[in-house]
């Protein structure tokens, strides 16, 4: 059970949040101009890193805001949280 520091609400229990997978995957602006392979890259391919990973989280049972989180998947250490649209911290 993580303690997650929602950038809008502060520290809350993990049970209030849901994880939305890898962050910084931008939806293509012109999907119709992509080949099947390029579209599949966006649609299906995820890194699923063991180690430091950038993730999207949603404070589902709180402010309902989405935000980003840097988490080490090998030990669940949360290195940073930051709002959508903000620059990710450098590793």
């Amino acid at each position: 059970m993580f303690l997650i520091n929602c950038p809008y609400c502060g520290e809350r229990d993990q049970s209030e949040f849901s994880c939305g997978g890898e962050a910084h995957i931008i939806r293509p602006k012109q999907p119709t101009e992509l080949s099947d392979d390029q579209w599949a890259e966006y649609l299906f391919m995820r890194k699923n890193i063991k180690g430091v990973q950038f993730e999207r989280w949603n404070h589902a049972h709180g402010c309902r805001k989405w935000f980003n989180m840097v988490r080490d998947t090998s030990n669940d250490k949360i290195h940073a949280v930051y709002k959508m649209g903000e620059k990710p911290p450098v590793k």
Partner: peptide, 8 residues
Amino acid sequence: LEDYLQTE
């Protein structure tokens, strides 16, 4: 819907 509104 919230996801798309807030993130995309």
